[in-house]
């Protein structure tokens, strides 16, 4: 019953926020060609939690980076909110990221000399938000992710899990429509991994934000609405949870 309702909700809101067509990425290393992505086609819907799952070197990170506009594809097209992002210049890409995208990294990538609040408010600073305003928002969000006692801590004064919470807060601070997370639990133990994952997914669901995550860990991937299996730069298969029932039965 609950599942059925979910389907109808998802179906009625089936609007792709990202559409990928014929996407390929080929690296040239000397005279060698490394095909990192090969003819990828798929849509990602608004509000969904989508996970790219694959072994190391399969091309997951490359796909994520191309989607985020950090790298230009060799061929193909990416439309995010109806904008072909591979055609944007550096300046427009930066503005696009400021407004629409949040990032969570495996190695947290916090700035060492800034405390938790300052780290979280960085994206707002780049947008030109006043110090008073961004500090207030950062403090609120840090409290929401359970770091009310670590507001003025520097990254080196926090555990891995705490650092990733700061990372998550930083990704969500601008209220982006899309959050990219590349192996966000890669450096964490399994218990902390699940906590962090729940936090991320919970925040995204609450505001109907699209969460796109990369992992090589099936247990982590299972939390997603959809698992995209990547193998040698291609989409091997796509599993949809609950409404397709495919991955459900496997469990």
């Amino acid at each position: 019953m609950k599942g059925a309702r979910n389907i109808s909700v998802e179906k009625s809101n089936m609007e792709p926020i990202i559409s990928i067509t014929n996407l390929s990425k080929i690296y040239r290393v000397g005279s060698e060609k490394v095909v990192a992505l090969q003819d990828v086609n798929m849509n990602i819907n608004k509000g969904e939690f989508c996970c790219f799952l694959g072994t190391s070197g399969s091309g997951k990170s490359t796909l994520l980076n191309v989607l985020a506009g950090l790298e230009k594809p060799t061929r193909g097209n990416i439309r995010i909110k109806n904008v072909s992002i591979e055609k944007l210049n550096e300046k427009k890409l930066a503005a696009f990221r400021q407004d629409n995208v949040g990032f969570i990294f495996q190695a947290y990538n916090l700035v060492n000399y800034l405390n938790a609040v300052e780290n979280v408010s960085l994206p707002l600073m780049f947008k030109g938000v006043s110090k008073k305003e961004r500090t207030k928002r950062a403090v609120d969000l840090l409290k929401a992710v359970g770091l009310s006692k670590h507001l003025r801590h520097k990254p080196t004064q926090m555990s891995g899990g705490q650092q990733q919470r700061v990372g998550i807060a930083r990704a969500f601070i601008t209220n982006p429509e899309i959050i990219f997370a590349d192996e966000p639990t890669g450096n964490l133990d399994s218990k902390t991994s699940l906590e962090v994952l729940d936090l991320m997914a919970g925040l995204a669901k609450k505001n109907r934000q699209t969460l796109i995550m990369v992992t090589h860990d099936l247990n982590i991937a299972k939390r997603a609405d959809r698992i995209v299996y990547i193998l040698d730069g291609r989409i091997e298969k796509i599993e949809e949870k609950q409404y397709t029932g495919v991955s459900y039965e496997q469990n």
Partner: peptide, 13 residues
């Protein structure tokens, strides 16, 4: 690394 992070987070060049 810091500069890279700034760019990814949308800091203008």
């Amino acid at each position: 690394r810091e500069i890279g992070i700034f760019k990814v987070l949308g800091c203008y060049l």
